[in-house]
Nucleic acid binder design. Structure first.
Ligand SMILES: [Mn+2]
Ligand SMILES: [Mn+2]
Ligand SMILES: [Zn+2]
Ligand SMILES: [Zn+2]
Lengths: 149, 149
DNA sequence: AGTGTACTTGCAACTCATTTGCATCTAGAA
DNA sequence: TTCTAGATGCAAATGAGTTGCAAGTACACT
């Protein structure tokens, strides 16, 4: 049943000091099912019958992000994408510039990178976060011949 | 004199197949003088007397980006920033989340990273570009006490 | 140096992601 | 069950970036 998912979502919300409202549970469960980061409009569209106002989704994600529950990523598509934060692995994404396909990867070696950067950037005291994404061509798209200009 | 800069700019434009127009020369020289990536509105505002329409700046930067002359970066400020592409070093930026201060750093170890990512992301054939930025606190801002909530 | 035209610019209007104000609603503490 | 701080929905605003089109100009070619 999907009930365990729901209970898990309720717990997450309560622990972060939020009320366990229907819209929040729906958004959270949508994120739990998502295989890759999703956009606000994908979330709204994916709600089926029980619709949530787009503004509400914006506010929910803003709150969840501040609470450290979700992560916001930029795939250069002119909008933001969101996914549940993976506390185990510091993972990043590789995005196909042709079709938008996304895959994860780990191993950005954040500690080493941060140390190296802090040594160079003398005006900085600490690093609190980082963003890293790779852009490339998926197998399908790289096989497909480039259309004539 | 600033004339050598101007001639350099003319050369850059011609080499890329662009006409050496006044707006383009102004934007290019502004970028040449900029110490860190600048936004469209900063460019427009920085033109002094000889104003350029904002739309024109957008088009110029779009073209220069496609020609590989400028790079677009995302500092999470809700708009894009641009700088002349540094062909020598693959450098990135560290941004203060409080005041927006920016510094450069090198050493993202792109080759190793790309190889590692491609090994994991089986659905991808090639990587064409990457974005990486660190967010932290500059010395000044990290010293300043956090304002009471 | 003068001409013609393809490439550029400026202006207005538009698109679209994201934000804000406010009245109404409701989760959950008492 | 009641009460209320916190949430949601709706409308309107904001602001980055884009597009259509008429007018302007760099520069290739006389
Ligand atoms: Mn992911
Ligand atoms: Mn730089
Ligand atoms: Zn693809
Ligand atoms: Zn700072």
């Amino acid at each position: 049943m999907d009930n365990e998912r729901r209970e898990e979502a309720v717990t997450i919300l309560r622990k972060a000091g939020f009320r366990a409202t229907e819209p929040r549970l729906l958004v959270l469960s949508f994120l739990q099912n998502a295989k890759y980061p999703v956009s606000i409009q994908e979330i709204v569209a994916g709600m089926g019958n029980k619709s949530i106002h787009q503004v509400t989704v914006y506010r929910i994600l803003h709150a969840l992000k501040h609470a450290g529950i979700v992560t916001q990523v930029d795939f250069r598509h002119g909008r933001s994408y969101y996914e549940l934060r993976d506390e185990q692995h510091d993972h990043h994404h590789i995005v196909c510039v042709k079709c938008g396909r996304v895959e994860d990867f780990v191993g950005c070696d954040y500690e080493r990178l941060a140390a190296k950067a802090l040594k160079q950037a003398r005006g900085f005291a600490t690093i609190v976060s980082h963003s890293l994404e790779l852009f490339g061509m998926c197998n399908t798209c790289s096989k497909r011949k480039v259309r004539a200009a």
